[in-house]
Structures are given as structure tokens and as C-alpha cells.
Design a protein around this nucleic acid. Sequence first.
DNA 1: CGTGCATTTGACTACGCTCAATTCCGGTGG
DNA 2: CCACCGGAATTGAGCGTAGTCAAATGCACG
Lengths: 272, 272
Amino acid sequence: MQAAMAINSLNRPHPSLIPTRSEVGRSDVDTAGKAGCGDCVLGKLCLPRIFTSLSQDSVRGHLNSLVRQNKALLKRKDVLFHQGHEFDSLYVVRTGAIKTVMLDENGTEHITGFHLPGDIVGLDGISTSRYATTAIALDSTSVCTLPFAALEKVASQVPDVQHHVFRIMAQEIQKDQHMMLTLGHRSAEQRLAGFLLRLSQHFQHRHLAADSFRLPMSRGEIGNFLGLAVETVCRILTRFQKIELLQTDGRSVSQLDIAGLKALMSTPVREL
Amino acid sequence: MQAAMAINSLNRPHPSLIPTRSEVGRSDVDTAGKAGCGDCVLGKLCLPRIFTSLSQDSVRGHLNSLVRQNKALLKRKDVLFHQGHEFDSLYVVRTGAIKTVMLDENGTEHITGFHLPGDIVGLDGISTSRYATTAIALDSTSVCTLPFAALEKVASQVPDVQHHVFRIMAQEIQKDQHMMLTLGHRSAEQRLAGFLLRLSQHFQHRHLAADSFRLPMSRGEIGNFLGLAVETVCRILTRFQKIELLQTDGRSVSQLDIAGLKALMSTPVREL
DNA sequence: CGTGCATTTGACTACGCTCAATTCCGGTGG
DNA sequence: CCACCGGAATTGAGCGTAGTCAAATGCACG
């Protein structure tokens, strides 16, 4: 199975980070999906962040042709794109969850982000024309494909679209900078509290319960992402349970005390 | 002096991070400068990253009109733009150095980046139409101003320009993600080694000595940026001197052992 | 020439990592 | 359907890196 191959090649450090494209092409994911994405292009579920406020028919036409029938279904551990492969598309997560993993020079894996429905993945590939990370599904996940060349074309014809793409990229920059702050200046407790709050917020925005949800990732992945050892993540979670900030059962989190976590966040920070 | 005011308001936590624009406008920097930026628009010194490979006269005209006479000179500690102020322009550092500082909810300062000649600052303002950081000159610094509205207009008319802007923003994303890795997964020694190497590389690209240069920022600023205490930065620098990886004299660094530092970087990393 | 910040060094502390062992859970095959 | 296996999660013990506090020195700017 090709997807499995891709995963394995991730696990053992690969000397050449630029494998050829063909071997693990987009063919390892189901590109069929249900037909007729048309109605979701401007809807909230599919491309909420890009196309809000775009409604002229001409634009709608452009965008529909862009994403129509460009859906893909991924199973857990399927690879959406691979670090070093030629960049050609962005993807919008529709359901499920995706992690992006960077393999550094030494062969160590670093998770650069978790991406939930509405998020866009692949932006890191634009600068070098090669994906800078590998995107892996954490769950059964469906995505919309946005061929970047086509997106650029539409963007150059419709200023609104161009503007939106700029904004989306700038949002990513802000998000990453915020993460830099977190990693550089906050304690393990605060990192985890912030992480949970961000997840909670995400679910709230989608009209789901903000205080009780399922984590799509393992403790190990959380730790890797936050720069903490697995054991630290565990210990802090149990500590949080003891002081009633939340309850956990495996990957389920419930009774999240949002105010309490926020209070933790505003605790005196390392001044440095 | 208005610039000083701006600095002070940074040092003590300001409840409202969105001050009015007028009080500390762009008027606190010398916008005059020498006339005739025309010849540097496509040159290596002024806008190297944006306009490489653009040479058609039409493009040149657009770009010249964009940046001509839009230069500003900053003195040490002058504020180029202020967090929360309305975003309108990007800036290209021509000479000197700039730091971007983010003031978080708790009033703590976090340095999100140092920007040397050729770097672009202000990208973080695009997403919200307000600058997300305050940009402060570390030295006497000159910048080119790129009014963003005008840049967007040119970008929508000239696909090459649009593409370049996308790339520049994606580069920033990659840079920030790399920083996330550094902060989350590397030891203090490795962070500092990486920091020095990046500086060294920057100077080398501009045909300056790679193994001997002046740091434009204080130890404290380095520490803040790297998520380390000032004392740690000092201690590691003296340690580096003891093992002959470099020599320091105040802010001057010399005899940088680039290979040695690189070796340090590839030392086993925390697995997490 | 003095005041104040930057830098350096030392002593001590503590947060979070490592190593190790156990338990829990999910998936797989009999 | 249950037993088994392997990875995930949890908990404990001990340690090390880097932070905190404190003090001395250096340096720049007024």
C-alpha cells in the first residue's frame, strides 16, 4: 500500500528529502468523493476562510471551477503531500484532522501544526515550489484541493481573491509568530492550557461544544508540537484534572474550565 | 520627542493595544532621504528579494513609482510602525537593523524577529489591517516604504509581482516555522549557535565577512528572541569562547568557527 | 566624570527531561 | 467473541539544564 510506504519513509530518516514525485503521487488518496462541490464553495463548511464576502457570480464561477470535484478522502495515516515533493496545490480541511510534520537535517520529526476543518494546509510549499512538510491525516479526513496555479490565475483576475489569499497567508504568519511566543516564553502548563483553549475555540466557532471534545492527536504528538516530553504532557493533564480544570478519558476531554485555563494563561510569564 | 514616547508606552503594559494613529504617526521618522531611489529598485541593495528577475520596462515603471522617494531614515530606538496601528505599508530594510516586538495580553515583550538589510517587515499587519508588532530600529536604519494598497494593485496587474509577493510571504512562513522548531526542540547552545550561523549567512550573502561581524542587538534581546535568560546567553557565549568557537568583544563577534557551530547543530536533538 | 544600563560571573533552585516499570487500550487474528 | 500483542498512556525516581537572585564590573552616553 503506497500510503503506508510514505509513512515508513518518514519514520526512518531519509537522506534525500527530495524524493521523486511519481512514486507516492496523489493517487494514494481517493480523489473521487461525492460530485457537486458547487454549493459548498461559498458555504461555511468547505472554504470558510477564503471566500467569505465573495458573492459575484463571476467570482463564484471561477472558484467553483477551481475546487469542483477536487475532493479527496484520506484514511488515518494517509499522506496528503510529502515533504520535498513538488508543490502544486493547497488543501482545505473539510472534516477530520491533519498534522504537518517537518523532518529536519538530523532526521528528527517535528510537528509544525494541527489542522482542523476550515484550516488550509500546504502554504509552506509556495516559497520553494516544494512542500516543506509532510501532511498526514490523524483521522478519516476529507479535503478540498486548490490547485495553486489556478488560484493564482483567479487571484490575478479578481482583486478580492488576491486580497483574501494575502490575508490567509498573513494569518498563518501571525499564527506561527504566536506559536513562537508560546514556545519561547511560556511554561509547560501554559503551553498546554493555551493548546486546549485554542482547540476549544476552534470547536466553538463551528458550533460544537467548547468544553468537551475529542483530541484527534496522541499525547506524544501534543508533546512534540509543544516542545514537551510525553511524560510532561501526561503529568500536567493529571494535574489539571486534580484541580478540576478538566476531565480526560483517553483522548476525550470534558468539563473544560475555560475561565480557569485562561486565568492560568495570564499568570506571570517568564520575563527573560 | 515622539519616538521616545512610543518606546515608553511599550515598556509599561498598555491596556489598550490599539492606540489612535495620529499621535505617533510616521512623522517621527525622517521621510525625506536622498531623492532618486529609481536605480535601486531593481538593484541588489534595496529590494533584492522582491524584484529579482523582473525586468520588463512596464514592471520597472510600476515599481519605481511604488517606492520612489518613499524612503525613511530611522535613528536608534525610532519606531517604524506601532503594534495596533492601522496597517498600510510594508518596509524593506536597506541598511541598519530592526527588531519587531510583540506586546502580549499580559504586557510582556516578545521579540518576534530581527530584520537586516534586504528583509521585509510589516507582513504581520496584512491579516487584520493592523500591525501585530512594533518595529524598532536597533541602529541608524534606512528603509524603503511599500504602500500595500499600491503593491496589491501592481500585483493584480502583473502576475510576476503577485507571484513574488506570495513567495515572500511563504518564505516568512517557512522562517517562522523553522523558528518554532528551534524553540521547541533545541537546547540553549544549539539555539545560540543557530542564531549566530544565520547572522553569519546573512552577512556572507551580502559579501561581508562571515566570521566576524557586529551584533546589532543586546544580549537581552538575543535571549528574549531565543527564549533564553540573558545570563544563559552570556554563559554560553563565554563557553563558546573557551572552546574556540568564536571571540567576542562587546557586540563584536570574530573568528566564528562556522564548521564547529554547524557540528554543534547536528548534535543529537531532544527527541520528545 | 558620573549615572545608569549592559554584561558577566557565581550560587542556588526548580522545571521539565530521562530512564524505567506498569497499566491501559485498540486493533488483529484465532 | 475472546485472547493476545504492541503501542499509548500513566506514574515514579532521579538528574540536569537553564532560570532566578544577587553582586561586581564594564561601558556608553549625557
